[in-house]
Simulated assay, not measured.
Amino acid sequence: MITRLWPVLALAACIHVQPTAASESESKSAPTRDYILWYRNYDNPAIRNLVELALRKTSEYGEFQIIRSEEISQGRALRELANPQSRILDIANVATSEERETFLNAIPVPVDGGLLGFRVCLVLPEQLSLFEGVSSLDDLRQRDIRIGQGAHWPDTPILEANGITVITHTRYEILFGMLRNKRFDCYARGVSEVLFDLEHNKADDLVIEPNILLAYAMPSYLFVAPDDHETAQRLQLGLERAILDGSFAVYLKNWFGRAVSSLGLDRRTVITLENPYLSEESRYVGRRTLENLERRVELLSVGD
C-alpha cells in the first residue's frame, strides 16, 4: 500500500525539475561520473543507499561513483553547492526551506518519507524527569525546555518561531558534548536519524525520551547546484522510477521501519509545531505528511 502513497506525493511536489532521459547513443558513450556527496550523507548508509538507488535506476546516464566530501558544516556545504566556481560537493541531503529552494536545485521527493520533521529528544538520563507530563507546546515553553540544534539547520528558526529556546552550534558532532554539559535539555533528532546517532557517536550515556514527539512539516530533499541540471534530472528520474516500481517503498521499510517501530511513535504524545518557512509546494508535501502520520507509522512499522 505504501507504493500507492508516494507517486501522489512525488508528482504533486515535482515542479522545479522536469527530468529527461538521455538517448541510447548518449548512454553508450557516457563516461563514468564521480558524484561528491556531503560527508554527513555519505556516512549515513540510508542516504548513501538512496542516492545509489536513484543513480542505478538511470543507467542511460552512464556509470557512476559516489565519493565522500571533505568534512564541512551544513551551512558551508550549501554555500559551496551554490557557488559555480566550487566543486567541493555535488549532492547534499538536507531539510528544505523556501530560501534553499530559491538558491539551490531541489529534487522535491522526501527522502525519508517525511520523517525528518518528526523529532524525539536525546537527553541525559538524569534529565528525564524534566519531560514528565509534557503534553503541549505550552508545557515546553513554561518549563523552558531548551533544545539543541545546528546553527544552519532550518529547524532552528522553526523552533524559535514557536517560542522555544534554541541553543546552536555549527557542528553536529559538537552538540552531543553540549548536551552532556547541560547547555541544553533536548537534542531534537529526526525519527529517521536518531538510532544512527546513538550507534555512531559513542552516545551510550544518552537516552531517547520515551513519551513526546515533536512534529512539524519539514520535508528533506536532495539538493544539487543551481546550474547542475543533468544531476538534478538524473536523481529525480531515478527516484520517480523507484517510486513506480516499488523499490522506494522497500527502501523506506528497510531503513526506517526499525526506527518507527522501536521508538513507539504510536504511543507518543504528538506536539505539532508550525513551520512558516516552506515554499507552497513543500508546504503541501509537509501537510500531507503530518495528516498521514498515523498511517505512515503503520506502514513503516516492522512486520506485515
Rank of each mutant, 00 (worst) to 15 (best):
Q18I: 09
V17K: 09
Y251G: 03
M218V: 01
V191P: 07
D205I: 05
R234W: 13
E24F: 13
L50I: 09
L278D: 09
Y39P: 02
T102V: 00
T231M: 10
R295A: 13
Y221M: 01
P157E: 14
L89G: 11
G190E: 11
I15A: 11
D144W: 01
R241G: 06
E24W: 15
L50W: 06
N41C: 06
L239G: 07
S73T: 15
L278Q: 00
I147C: 00
G133M: 02
R76Y: 04
E71L: 09
Y35C: 08
L179F: 06
S69P: 03
F196D: 11
P84V: 10
N105E: 11
R258L: 14
N181F: 00
L104Y: 05
L122E: 07
P19H: 08
P108L: 03
S59H: 07
P219T: 09
L130K: 12
N83C: 09
W153G: 11
I72L: 12
V51L: 14
R76P: 04
T3N: 12
T231D: 01
E294R: 14
H169D: 15
S135G: 15
G150W: 07
K28M: 10
I91L: 08
N201Q: 08
W38K: 01
I158Q: 03
G238P: 06
I158V: 15
S25P: 00
